[in-house]
Design a binder for these strands. Structure first.
Lengths: 343, 343
DNA sequence: CTGAAAGCGCTTACAG
DNA sequence: CTGAAAGCGCTTACAG
């Protein structure tokens, strides 16, 4: 490994350099750089000009030690569902629009939770976003102790002290049931994961609740080990293999499972969709609207949800000790080819 | 908005608290907390115990202002291709394993580049990873000036001063051509995007080069505006509508375009895959191995590539002014149902 | 509005 | 190995 002969690293230009060059105090520079700082227009103009000329960028680390880090932590647990890429994209864009940056925390490892707690404490993130996961009590506690606002996205975490932005999972189940029944299906089944997450339970519960209200009984259940394509595939195989009369429709916990399930239905069992079996999913992932799947699905307004989450958080950051909000957004169903069968 | 009546934010415990409690100097605490700091076993033990008891976590922001921020920036430009979710997952996990954290930079907006530069300068990231995008000269310059190592992932950026970890795009083109020809296809077409990215040009070039070497000529080209499902769909429609004799096989820039293309082929033109048209993609996204697409594709060893990128970067962080590496990983083709046609 | 000064939490030579 | 002290780059009362 030879040393590169590139120019030696020039010292970064600091507030002191700007102050010296502009012939003012460093306090003056600090104020000029901060919109809220009191600075005469003339002075600010001059300082900003010098700063620009010197290429000065305030060191956020140094700033963070006294005031805010401008860092927003985002906890992601599920890297299998492609919707999270879109969600991550929206979040980081929204956060950047607020002149902050995104600390991505991958919570998939064993020691993940303590990791996350450490992070909150070590980087002094201004706020924490938890996507589609229940927040462990330790985390909540750690954040509360540091007065760090937390928002849960896509899950309901009542009483957790965190803000919540999500859709009503029970309602999703009802929508799916209504849609299928309205389109003439009568032997409704559900496929999800056997996890004990609230969202899983709620979607299933709403689904069953509504179909019973309408005089039907659940025709079957398939449970995979996770919310993935493979789990959807396998759970569907088991479901179809175990029932004497196959269901005429299946509501899946999410699109990725539904896609796995559809492939099982078509390629393992040669049933037709939507004639033999109708399908409803949740999320509207990119492939839901592909010609291959053309999946009827329940859409959550992710973009609005993200923006809402971020703006709520910034209100809490600014106003300090504000009570958390709980926002349940409306979702809607988008009909596509998997439920065209009419009675 | 009522104020919450939760306990007031307790002051975070700092190095001073630990020093006082343990009856030592703050310097001693600092050394005890840092593996490299010289500290007698007995003293370290005692301090660590106190730190633990008090729940002390060093403030990385404060640390970062003198030494390293432990922040690794990762620039992501493409949030449409699901592979990036997997890649992001691997990167953040690898970075966390090194006891650092991931600053996600969404470079999709207008002012993206200057944003990125600012970020590097403002947060003093220890290193920067650029995924599948060419690095703008300003960025390279800014990083070089601050001695921040840069790694380009999934693109070749020779002479950029950055480390590179990628696969050989020209070779991918050749592999695709060989595979198709070996399987009896003779009227080979290419579909990609009309962008001037090096990867786009290289895959296409390798493909054409090889098929000409083997006595064929390119049968047609389709160019979308981006690397997306829709672009693949549309470009394929144009390609098939414009040729008198349709191609008998298509090499797509990547899987996501290939999926769009396959849907166009099947649903717009009712051609059969692989009998009428064979397909090869690149990336091996989750849906490539679904029953619906069952796509023959060129696989890059992403996990190894990510780990290599991260470890290279950490060597550079540790050793200071080291020359950048350039690592070209081997890729391989995975045959599935889209190229089963034999002559 | 502006400057001098103290302080944020940590690290790192420098003596001992 | 340990402590006292200076310093990192910034912010924020406090006087003027």
């Amino acid at each position: 490994m030879k040393k590169t002969d590139s120019a030696p690293a020039t010292k970064r230009v600091t507030i002191t350099d700007v102050a010296r060059e502009a012939n003012v105090s460093i306090a003056a520079v600090s104020r000029a750089m901060n919109p809220e700082g009191s600075s005469s227009p003339e002075m600010r103009r001059r300082i900003l000009e010098v700063a620009e000329r010197l290429g000065y960028k305030p060191n956020r680390l140094a700033r963070g030690i006294k005031s805010q880090s401008s860092l927003i932590g985002i906890l992601v647990t599920n890297f299998e569902n492609p919707v999270y890429l879109a969600i991550l994209s929206e979040f980081s864009a929204a956060i950047q629009r607020h002149n902050c940056h995104t600390l991505l925390i991958n919570v998939n490892t064993e020691k993940s939770i303590s990791e996350a707690v450490s992070l909150v404490m070590e980087y002094h993130v201004d706020a924490l976003i938890v996507t589609s996961a229940s927040v462990p009590p330790e985390l909540v506690e750690a954040c509360a102790r540091q007065n760090t606002p937390v928002a849960i996205f896509g899950r309901d975490g009542e009483d957790s002290g965190a803000s919540v932005v999500t859709c009503d999972d029970v309602e999703m189940g009802r929508m799916a049931a209504d849609h299928l029944i309205d389109h003439g299906y009568r032997r409704l089944a559900y496929v999800g994961a056997s996890t004990k997450e609230q969202a899983t339970l709620d979607r299933k519960r709403g689904f069953i609740e509504r179909l019973e209200q309408r005089g039907l009984t659940l025709h079957g259940v398939g449970e995979g080990h996770r919310h993935s394509y493979d789990a959807g595939y396998e759970a569907t195989c088991e479901l179809l293999a175990s029932t004497e009369v196959i269901p005429d429709s299946i509501f899946y916990f999410d699109d990725i499972m539904a896609c796995g399930g559809m492939d099982a239905i078509r390629h393992e069992f040669s049933h037709r969709i939507p004639q033999d079996i109708g399908i409803v999913g949740v999320d509207d992932i990119r492939f839901a609207s592909s010609k291959s799947y053309d999946l009827t699905t329940i859409c959550q307004p992710f973009t609005e949800m993200v923006n809402k989450t971020v703006s709520l958080l910034f209100v809490r950051i600014k106003q300090g000790d504000t009570a958390p909000d709980r926002i349940i957004m409306p979702c809607h169903i988008t009909q596509r080819g998997t439920t065209q069968h009419v009675g």
